[in-house]
């Protein structure tokens, strides 16, 4: 775990209860590597994002290299490789939602959060807004995912109220 030496402040994720949970997950698969996605999820739940140090720790726990872990992390869109705002807001703009006005919902979120651009975090650190591909809820256009919750039937008009509810 060379990266740990570089940052002495890094606190391991897989200790205590979380280590036990990882052991339970490992039982479910015939290889240790198969626990990689679940382990990365545990990191993101604990820390909010997946740092290089965390990749090294996960690699050491599962007997794979940090480079391999990074190769997997970068394939999947849901693992954050940088810290994001307290509220991570994903607006679906794929065709079924676009034809229902999803572009106006994106605009409303950008305007009301103070996020200058898609993917940037607002100056107060509270919000990050991105466009996302089909959320599998196309009949409830426009679905918006705020952290782990999906809000259905969002229109531009409802955006201020939704943001006010995020306290």
């Amino acid at each position: 775990m060379s990266a740990h030496a570089e940052d002495a402040r890094y606190e391991p994720v897989f200790v205590g209860e979380r280590r036990k949970r990882l052991d339970v997950i490992l039982e479910r698969y015939p290889t240790k590597q198969a626990a990689l996605l679940p382990a990365l999820w545990m990191v993101q739940e604990a820390r909010g994002w997946v740092s290089e140090d965390a990749m090294a720790e996960v690699g050491a726990a599962l007997g794979i290299t940090q480079a391999y872990v990074k190769g997997v992390v970068t394939f999947y869109t849901m693992y954050h490789q940088h810290p994001v705002g307290k509220y991570f807001i994903q607006v679906c703009t794929t065709t079924p939602c676009l034809c229902s006005g999803a572009d106006k919902v994106v605009d409303a979120f950008l305007d009301h959060t103070g996020c200058k651009e898609l993917g940037l975090t607002s100056p107060d650190g509270k919000y990050t807004v991105i466009e996302v591909e089909c959320l599998g809820a196309c009949g409830f256009a426009t679905p918006v995912q705020v952290n782990a919750d999906t809000i259905e039937n969002v229109t531009a008009e409802k955006v201020p109220e939704i943001l006010a509810g995020l306290k």
Binding site: T95, P96, E133, C134, G136, A137, C138, F140
Partner: peptide, 10 residues
């Protein structure tokens, strides 16, 4: 279930 237009399995 990620095919745009499909939301039944959900």
């Amino acid at each position: 279930e990620s095919e745009p237009g499909t939301f039944k399995d959900r």
